[in-house]
């Protein structure tokens, strides 16, 4: 079976500024992959290239085995900013995205209500987005991607705006849900702990121009629980990734 996503040697520039310097990665069907890298390294840019929004100078993108450069609508996407239309209600925003992805209207309505309830936002279904806090908007944006029917889900720092407690709660919730459904996920995150807890594999990017510094398999079995945090293996892996991401390490590999 073809991988859900294959990125090969993608090079992306904005003017003279090289952002992606030959990035390759794969997400197998039903695999959870996290992408970690310093701020400004080009993680969001890579998702935009995968989603067909930004053209790449070089390289190949395959989604489900088929060439996908410049093709849009093939992934379920959660952008870094919540990106809710201010003139649509919370439920209306979810329904619109599902409608664009081809979900019938009645089904979209039902799903939106049901899942808003599951993330604790049942009372906000008919509210205008600006009346929600940043974290609440992010949860709406998250279930909007979750409900989109495409096989591959690309999440750009889905829990960035949440407080530590809600964040942990959402991580555990995503973990159990993912373990029940096993969908292909590419998750961008700044949190090493989050990546270790959730993923099968972690791809570490260098500072801009981004290239893959290291790929590591996460050895923990499933189902997992948040108790992992306390094991020595977890601490060891976390420290290893932390060392990779240290500015000195990134600068050294660059030779800059």
């Amino acid at each position: 079976m073809a991988p859900a996503l294959e990125v090969r040697d993608v090079v992306k520039r904005y003017g003279d500024k090289e952002v992606l310097a030959g990035v390759s990665l794969t997400v197998e069907d039903g695999e959870f992959v996290s992408l970690i890298g310093p701020s400004g390294s080009g993680k969001s840019t890579l998702l935009k290239v995968i989603g067909g929004l930004e053209p790449a100078e070089q390289g190949e993108i395959r989604i489900d085995g088929r060439r996908a450069e410049g093709r849009r609508g093939l992934i379920a996407y959660m952008p870094q900013q919540a990106s809710l239309l201010p003139w649509r209600t919370v439920a209306g925003n979810i329904e619109l995205a599902l409608g664009i992805a081809g979900v019938p209207r009645g089904e979209a309505k039902r799903l939106a209500r049901e899942w808003l309830g599951r993330v604790g936002l049942a009372d906000y279904a008919d509210a205008w987005p600006h009346t929600l806090s940043g974290g609440m908007q992010q949860r709406v944006s998250f279930i909007r991607a979750l409900l989109s029917p495409q096989k591959l889900m690309c999440l750009d720092e889905p829990f960035g705006a949440l407080d530590a407690l809600t964040r942990q709660h959402m991580q555990e919730w995503l973990l159990s849900m993912w373990e029940a459904n096993r969908r292909a996920v590419l998750l961008v995150t700044h949190s090493i702990e989050e990546a270790l807890l959730l993923s099968d594999r972690i791809v570490v990017l260098s500072a801009r121009p981004a290239s893959v510094l290291r790929e590591l398999a996460v050895p923990f079995g499933r189902p997992r629980s948040a108790k992992l945090w306390k094991t020595p293996e977890f601490a060891e892996l976390r420290d290893a990734i932390y060392d990779l991401l240290k500015p000195a390490a990134a600068g050294g590999s660059d030779g800059a």
Partner: peptide, 27 residues
């Protein structure tokens, strides 16, 4: 531009972007 990019990325066509983003924004 973030909204425009998001809608384009999830596969909205020209007409959908006009009707759901540009027109309401212009009101």
């Amino acid at each position: 531009p973030a909204l425009r990019g998001y809608l384009a990325m999830i596969g909205a066509d020209r007409w959908t972007i006009f009707a759901k983003l540009e027109l309401p924004n212009a009101v």
